[in-house]
């Protein structure tokens, strides 16, 4: 299986599980397959710089490399877009956008910023080159906000459609259709092999498929702790004499072995929970490195590109 198969890939999951990391790795992979790729974060801190590096800027996009660009969408930027569209005089639209009132107003209008952000994504997906019907972007990888917020985001067009009339309504329907089209859009759910992230991942899978009608591309189990010890190693350790060890080392060793055993057992347990729940499971190891940057993203992208990336550990 190749992860960046569809034109629109949305990466979701609990906060802190590695959404930015996975989105960056998938985008890098897509770019290496020759696709012109946009990596887009929705209402998040910009971590892509630190993960991928970048070479320059072009309008509001950052150029990572030849085929790869990144940017961040947030409520403020789409609100400004909205005002600029309806109040074409720049100094004026700026003044309005900067009035504190507007911030509250935008936030207090339900789903407005979600809808505008989805609309922006839709625009990027459907945008075509000037002289042909070909899309500008071959692949758009979206890092969605953490679970609760991403459900709000992804469901906004459908919920809004019930309130809207006229041209806005058909626009909302088009956005919903885009998200539901299995040939165009996939949701990649990221999780850790731990209790809460797994519970959220399964909840997200359920709601995204049943309520939003989306297609799951994969559940990525990220950062699975490696199997360092074999079954009987702990017994062998207690049998051996530790007299020659430096002081304090014996206790430390025991603690570490216990930690390693427990953490690996927990990882296997929750990995199996996910394996049982889905056919599209991709597993990535915990990288034991102090820094996390370009090098690690490349390593993960390589692992993702291997045909057997279903079972890496």
């Amino acid at each position: 299986m190749s992860l960046p198969e569809k034109r629109l890939i949305i990466v979701g999951g609990k906060g802190g599980v590695g959404k930015s990391v996975i989105a960056a790795a998938v985008a890098l992979l897509a770019a290496r397959q020759g696709k012109k790729t946009l990596l887009l974060g929705v209402d998040t801190l910009d971590r892509f710089d630190a993960l991928l590096g970048y070479q320059g800027e072009e309008k509001s996009l950052k150029i990572v490399e030849d085929n790869l660009y990144s940017t961040i969408l947030n409520p403020k930027s789409v609100a400004n877009d909205f005002i600029e569209t309806h109040v074409p005089i720049r100094t004026l639209s700026k003044k309005i956008a900067n009035s504190g009132l507007f911030k509250y107003w935008f936030e207090a209008t339900p789903m407005l910023s979600e809808l505008l952000m989805l609309g922006k994504i839709w625009k990027l997906v459907t945008e075509t080159k000037r002289r042909s019907a070909e899309p500008v972007w071959d692949c758009i990888v979206v890092e969605a906000p953490a679970t609760g917020h991403s459900l709000g985001l992804l469901g906004a067009s459908e919920t809004a459609a019930q309130l809207l009339v006229g041209p806005m309504r058909s626009k909302a329907d088009e956005i919903t259709a885009m998200l539901r089209d299995p040939e165009l859009c996939n949701l990649i759910i990221t999780t850790l092999a731990e209790e809460m992230p797994v519970a959220e991942a399964l909840e997200l899978q359920k709601l995204a498929t049943q309520k939003l009608g989306m297609t799951i591309g994969a559940i990525v189990i990220n950062a699975i702790y490696p199997k360092i010890l074999q079954d009987k190693d702990a017994d062998a350790l207690s049998a051996v004499s530790k007299e020659a060890y430096p002081e304090g080392l014996s206790d430390a060793l025991e603690n570490a072995v216990q930690y390693s055993t427990e953490r690996r057992a927990r990882a296997e347990h929750f990995r199996d929970v996910i394996r049982n729940e889905t056919q599209h499971c991709v597993e990535l190891p915990f990288l034991l490195s102090e820094k996390f940057g370009r090098e690690q993203i490349e390593e993960l992208a390589d692992l993702l590109s291997k045909p057997g990336s279903g079972r890496v550990v």
């Binding site: 360092i228 010890l229 074999q230 350790l237 060890y245 080392l249 570490a256």
Partner: peptide
């Protein structure tokens, strides 16, 4: 003393060596 000792022990490919590998990973 402790870290160098553990690093040396972790070279072994037996059960004890693996225990020391776990210790180094944890220490890291």
């Amino acid at each position: 003393s402790q870290r160098p000792f553990a690093e040396e022990k972790a070279q072994e490919s037996d059960a004890i060596g693996r225990c020391f590998k776990a210790l180094l990973a944890y220490d890291d």
